[in-house]
């Protein structure tokens, strides 16, 4: 399988603190990859490095074999890297439809359109409705984000990313804060995503990881502890002591 996204010896420090320590990852087309690790392991920092929010202190990020380390955030989105946020990061005052439409509009290059009314772009609206239908929240299209239940807001987070038609999707704890009954719904949604999208998911819920991922990377103190198939990784003594011990406490 060909690799879409990879990092080579990626490093990032804040002052004396090494938050990302020589991380080399490679995400092939259609990957279902999970990134786990205790709190403060540098998982979200890694996503910020991949999306260009932060620039690395060393190492490189490559997309389709091309070095994109110096490429800005917006340009990376245009090349097909989309992300969701750990804490809902949406637009309180907009409707669900408008929220997703913002993403679809940017992707289809009409964000600068200054004259034609937004509601005359039928294709944008249709595409949004199609995504919402796929995620089972089409009924909520015209409601304000702030009126939505938390779990549904998590689905909107994913819908926004899908509006960008990503080739690589970075999910930062997609089920964070969602009651376990509803997290099943999120997993269903993820399972139905097109198989050619490469997905890298940060997650705490081991059950979710086990059901979703076919490959797991464990990050501890910014560095890769181990990487492998789920069963292998979960059987690893070091992982059990570092990660599972932490999960019990936290």
């Amino acid at each position: 399988m060909s690799v879409v996204l990879e990092t080579l010896n990626l490093q990032r420090s804040f002052g004396a603190l090494m938050v990302t320590d020589n991380v080399s990852l490679s995400i092939p087309v259609g990957a279902r990859h999970a990134l786990i690790g205790p709190n403060g392991a540098g998982k979200t920092t890694l996503i910020n490095l991949l999306t260009g929010v932060l620039s690395p202190s060393g190492g490189s990020v490559r997309l389709d074999g091309e070095d994109i380390t110096g490429v800005g955030q917006a340009a990376r989105v245009k090349r097909g890297i989309a992300r969701t946020f750990q804490i809902n990061s949406l637009f309180r005052n907009l409707t669900v439809l408008d929220t997703i439409a913002l993403a679809v509009a940017e992707r289809s290059g009409i964000g600068w359109s200054i004259w034609r009314p937004a509601n005359s772009y039928r294709s944008v609206r249709d595409e949004c409705m199609e995504i919402l239908t796929r995620l089972g929240i089409a009924d909520e299209a015209l409601r304000q984000i702030s009126e939505l239940a938390y779990g549904k807001q998590r689905l909107v987070e994913i819908a926004v990313a899908l509006g960008l038609r990503p080739r690589v999707l970075l999910l930062d704890e997609p089920a964070a804060g969602v009651p376990s009954m509803e997290s099943g719904r999120i997993l269903e949604v993820l399972a139905e995503l097109p198989s050619d999208i490469a997905i890298l998911m940060i997650e705490h819920d081991m059950d979710l990881v086990a059901r979703f991922a076919n490959r797991i990377t464990v990050l501890v103190a910014g560095a890769v502890l181990t990487e492998g198939a789920p069963l292998e990784v979960m059987a690893d003594e070091r992982v059990r002591s570092v990660y599972l011990g932490e999960a019990l406490h936290g």
């Binding site: 989309a82 992300r83 637009f91 960008l164």
Partner: peptide, 12 residues
Amino acid sequence: DNASRMHAIGAP
């Protein structure tokens, strides 16, 4: 409402 989210969807 949320500038960092707009960055994340690739808006200039």
